[in-house]
Every structure is written in C-alpha cells, then in structure tokens.
Design a protein around this nucleic acid. Structure first.
Length: 407
DNA sequence: CCTCCACAGGAAGCGCAGGAGT
DNA sequence: ACTCCTGCGCTTCCTGTGGAGG
C-alpha cells in the first residue's frame, strides 16, 4: 500500500519533470557560464585584449585595474579575454599562463600566494611556511616555467581590507627579480572607493591601465536576458513581460546582470516545479522572494555559534516592543544566553565587531549615533526577514532552547 | 560654553593549530 | 623532538567622540 503510494509519487515527480520542457539548457543561466558574446562590453573587451596582446609579442602586458559594481560583467569579460588569449597562445606555442584567484574566498596573502603557486603546478601546505618562503617559491616557479604570467585577482579589495597592501606591493615589484618570465596583474573590484585608499605607489603600478565597467541599464539588461533566454529556454516558454520584469528588478539594484539572470533562472525552476508550461510574472515575484530567503538562510546558518547568539539576542530585543537595540542591551541579552547555555561569554569589544560583521552581511543595520548625555552607541535593527532568520537560528541544536519561535 | 556618558574602534599581543626545516 | 613561522579568534588596554544636559 505504502509502496504503491511512493511509486505514484515518484512517477508524478519524474513525469512532471519530463513534461516540463521549459528549459533547453538551464546552465546557460548560471553565474559560472561565460558566454562567447558579451554585449555592451565591446569597449572594455577591446581595451583589455589590446593590453594583453603584448604577451603575444613576448613582452610584459601592463597591469590592469578594472572596477565596476557587482554584476557589471567584469569577471566575465576578463575571463573571456584571458581564455581567448590562452587559446591563441597555445596555437602559437607561446608560453603564456593565466591564473585566476578569488580574493573573497582566499582572503589572506598566504592563501592568495599559495593559490597562484598551486595553479602553476607547485605544492604548498595549508599553513606553516613564512611569506618570504612563499615569495621565493613563487619566483622560482615562475622562472623555471618561464613565459608571461597573468594573475587575475578578483575582488581584490578583500585582501587589502584584511591584510593591507603588502601583498600587492610585493607582487607589483616581483618583476624586478624575474629574468626569463614576467608577471602581470589584473585587479578586479566592485568597491569604487578602494583605489582612493591605496598606497600611491601601488596605485600607480597596479593601475597602469584602468578600465571602468558602468552598470547596465534596464534596456541593456533586457537585451542580455533576451540573448540568454534564446539558448536557455524553449521557444515560447516565457510569458509576456517576464524578461522586462527581471530586467527592471535587477536595474533597480544598480544594474546587476547576475541578479537578473538568477531571477530568470529561478523563475523558470519555479514554473517547472509547479508544472506550468510557461514562466509567468508571478514566478518571477516568487523567485525574488526565494532568492532573498535562500541568501539569508544560508548566511545565518553558517554563522559561528556566538554570532548566532548575538543575532538571536538582537532578534529577541527587537521583537520585545522596540524595533532597535543598542550595543549595551545586546551585550546584556547575549550574556544571559551564554550563561543559560553555560558557555563562555565573549568580551563586549568582540561583540561590537561581530555586530559590525552582521551589518556588513546585510542581516542587521548598525548605525552609530550619539544620544548626547546618554552616550554614543550603535543602534541595531534587524533588516533581514524575521521568520527566515528565526528558522535558520532554531535549526541549530545548541540554540534551540534560547530561541523562542512563538510570537 | 563645557562635561561626561556609553560606547566605537585602534593597537598590541596571546594561545592555539599545524606545516616546514633541522 | 624541537624550533620557527603564519593565520585566526579572541582579550586587554586604550584613546576618541557627538551632543543633551548642566
């Protein structure tokens, strides 16, 4: 009996997937897909290509610095151009290698260097070597391989913020020690103020060439989505106005093409799940909510324990009448929770840092204000969806007893 | 005008993990 | 086995500060 039901259910799922031929190729909408054609970026592509072409003439290309907001195609353009360069280099049998490092994931000098060395075929332990040793190994690796090396440092602002500009300084000067090889860098950042905070020496050498990526406007987003929809969706699978809506929503968020593509992809997935033969505007609206929710859940559930406790304290306080809390209040509430759970309590100094981290993640907003006689403090508000945050928090066993789900 | 609250946030440094060289 | 190095999360100690109330 039960077995039969299961079979029915499974049949149902597989049938609906087979029937739903909304997508032709869903992967064409994922962020990893680098299309061969990047519209509205011809200028940037040309400029980067002409700079990197120096490598084909066996001289060192200038360092390049690209900046623009998220989803403006910086990474895609750089990856596309370097891919083409690499192909050409293979054809011409020229020793050119490109290395891509994402500095958000590898946010220490050590890991960035280790990554570069590893993608050149070297081996470095996870930790343990001195930085000087790493530089030495990098230099000897470059020299033994020989040729033109291009290192792409994506989201370069992350190492600077965490480590200062020492790494960049050393990397910009590494060429002085190289004889039969050279190293060029392509820095990518979406922090527009980043350059101003940079040491002028590094700035001049890293920014030998500067390339700006302006945000896409709604019309351009629309055209990008249309191009991509042609190869990703079956013809006629998109209802009228779906692309317009995705483009408009993403344009509102500083012309973020990645966001636009995510919206379209998730809307398609929702339509497919619901067994609809077309993607409709309602699906886009649901996709927007789902993307937001997923992001919040993901961020909250991967938080370290004490950050979760602090977030739980903020949630509790803001639900208890007022809509905001101060650092002092949060610290008191947090201390209560830790003693309840018989955990060590972090210092208030550390707690303020964690609150700032929560702020940077966009879960809360923390604004420093002065209340005159009553001191200067941070006013913290929860800005992520309350229920999503609560769900993520109570999924942690340790926190179960201190998070009250009921209203 | 000055004071003084309730913190912010910088600087230094500590202890641990863990890999390399010896 | 021992020393040396780094990253990481954290503490300790510290100086700085906007503005309401005196």
């Amino acid at each position: 009996m039960l077995k039969l039901q299961n079979e029915d259910f499974l049949d149902e799922v597989f049938k609906s997937i087979k029937r739903a031929s909304i997508f032709l190729d869903r992967d064409k909408l994922t962020p990893d897909y680098v299309p061969e054609n990047l519209p509205f970026r011809e200028e940037q592509i040309k400029k980067i290509a002409s700079i990197l072409a120096q490598a084909l003439r066996n001289s060192r290309p200038n360092n390049i610095f690209t900046y623009g907001l998220t989803g403006t195609g910086k990474t895609a353009v750089v990856k596309l151009v370097t891919k083409k360069l690499q192909e050409r280099a293979v054809e011409l049998k020229l020793p050119i290698q490109t290395v891509y490092v994402n500095c958000r994931q590898r946010d220490t000098s050590y890991r960035v260097l280790a990554d570069i060395i590893e993608s050149l075929g070297g081996h470095v332990p996870f930790t343990g070597l001195s930085l000087a040793e790493l530089y030495r190994r990098l230099i000897s690796k470059l020299e033994s391989l020989g040729g033109r090396f291009i290192v792409i440092l994506d989201e370069i602002d992350f190492i600077i913020k965490k480590q200062g500009d020492d790494l960049l300084y050393k990397l910009t000067r590494i060429n002085e020690e190289l004889k039969n090889s050279s190293l060029s860098m392509i820095g990518i950042t979406n922090d527009l103020n980043f350059i101003d905070n940079l040491d002028p020496r590094i700035r001049s050498s890293l920014g030998e060439e500067e390339i700006v990526f302006p945000p896409y406007n709604a019309l351009q987003l629309k055209s990008i989505l249309e191009d991509r929809a042609k190869i990703a969706f079956r013809t006629g699978a998109l209802d009228e106005g779906v692309i317009d809506l995705c483009a408009a929503l993403a344009a509102r968020e500083h012309g973020d093409a990645r966001k636009a593509l995510d919206l379209l992809r998730v809307a398609g997935e929702i339509a497919e799940r619901e067994g609809d033969e077309k993607v409709r505007k309602e699906h886009v609206e649901k996709a927007r909510k789902e993307l937001e929710k997923d992001k919040v859940y993901e961020v909250v559930s991967t938080l370290p324990l004490h950050a979760k406790l602090i977030l739980a304290s903020i949630v509790d306080l803001t639900r208890r009448g007022k809509d905001s809390a101060t650092t002092g209040e949060i610290f008191v509430e947090y201390s209560k929770k830790t003693s309840e759970l018989r955990l060590e309590t972090l210092t208030q100094r550390r707690v303020t840092d964690i609150i700032s981290e929560l702020d940077m993640m966009g879960l809360v907003s923390a604004r420093v204000i002065s209340r005159g006689r009553y001191g200067k403090t941070k006013v913290v508000k929860l800005i992520a969806n309350l229920n999503t945050v609560l769900n993520a928090l109570k999924d942690d066993e340790i926190l179960e007893s201190v998070v009250d789900v009921d209203k």
